[in-house]
């Protein structure tokens, strides 16, 4: 039987009358990069807090490499989580924060941490309190990457970080991942920027898994089709339509469904324009208001 890096079985969590997570079932494999996507309040951070045993689920169970992480040092040692709000001690310097982190993570790569300090041009002597928002994110990213933890989680890690800083993060992440494969979970809003990094995607919406699967497979099922109204309608019959817009006799639809090569050829013969939907746009379609149940999509 396959041992997953992260296994969530029927996880539910409520905060008062609010349902943060509802019956979440997920399996994350070893040495893969996952994108955990969802709108604000979708339950991403709650899920990650439960996975790292920082919060208890009301129902269900989590396993890390086959073991429950609750009060299990051996399981927890496999995880490094970097959060958007930092979670560093305010009066500790950058050097101190890295020093503490190095003593907690068994695979800590000191050279990588030093290299990233130079690349991010982060002042080692500054205390966390005195760092700008972007610098705080840089520190989190350095800890996450240098931890080399078998499960490394980045929960919105780059608040306040400029485009160059984010690009550096992506470059180092992929470079380090190629040399030292591990399970990376990237929870983010900046979907377009990371879409090429992600091997698997999980979309949470209102505390439920709306969509999960291989990133390429998902992208290969999401299309825009444009053309004259009657021809478009002929070809999308029976397909799952995410959005439909009409401009006079012209129609543009976004569909999320498998399309065979024959169907594509037939559409081209009918002068229909077919293009892929970027992951971010697909995410907006899926989470942008109209509730689409998981069963509607994941078939």
């Amino acid at each position: 039987m396959m041992t997953y890096a992260v296994e969530c079985k029927n996880i539910s969590k409520h905060f008062g009358k609010t349902t943060a997570l509802s019956h979440i079932n997920l399996n994350m494999e070893k040495d893969k990069i996952y994108g955990l996507l969802g709108r604000n309040g979708a339950g991403k951070s709650t899920l990650l807090n439960i996975v790292t045993a920082q919060t208890f689920p009301d129902d269900g169970e989590v396993k890390i490499f086959g073991e429950s992480p609750y009060e299990n040092g051996r399981a927890l040692r496999n995880i490094c989580i970097v959060k958007e709000n930092g979670m560093f001690l305010k009066d500790v310097s950058v050097t101190g924060a890295l020093d503490i982190a190095s003593s907690f993570y068994n695979n800590w790569d000191k050279k990588l941490a030093e290299r990233l300090l130079i690349e991010f041009q982060l002042d080692k002597r500054k205390t966390y309190r005195n760092l700008s928002l972007g610098m705080k994110s840089q520190l989190g990213i350095i800890v996450g990457l240098a931890s080399r933890a078998p499960i490394t989680i980045f929960d919105e890690p780059y608040i306040g970080l400029d485009a160059a800083g984010r690009q550096l993060f992506y470059d180092v992440l992929i470079e380090d991942y190629m040399e030292n494969p591990r399970t990376i979970i990237l929870s983010t809003h900046l979907i377009d920027e990371v879409s090429n990094l992600l091997e698997d995607v999980i979309i949470l919406n209102k505390g439920e898994v709306m969509l999960e699967g291989n990133s390429e497979d998902i992208k290969n099922k999401a299309f825009y089709i444009r053309g004259t109204k009657d021809r478009v309608e002929k070809h999308i019959s029976g397909k799952k339509v995410l959005s439909k817009e009409e401009f006079g006799n012209t129609m543009a639809v976004a569909i999320f469904d498998s399309i065979s090569d024959n169907e594509i050829r037939a559409m081209e013969l009918d002068d229909l324009a077919i293009s892929s939907i970027p992951l971010q746009q697909l995410f907006i379609f899926l989470t942008g208001g109209k509730m689409i149940k998981r069963g509607d999509i994941n078939e």
Partner: peptide
């Protein structure tokens, strides 16, 4: 902080 660092 310590929970975040993975300590029991």
């Amino acid at each position: 902080y310590m929970l975040n660092m993975g300590i029991t």
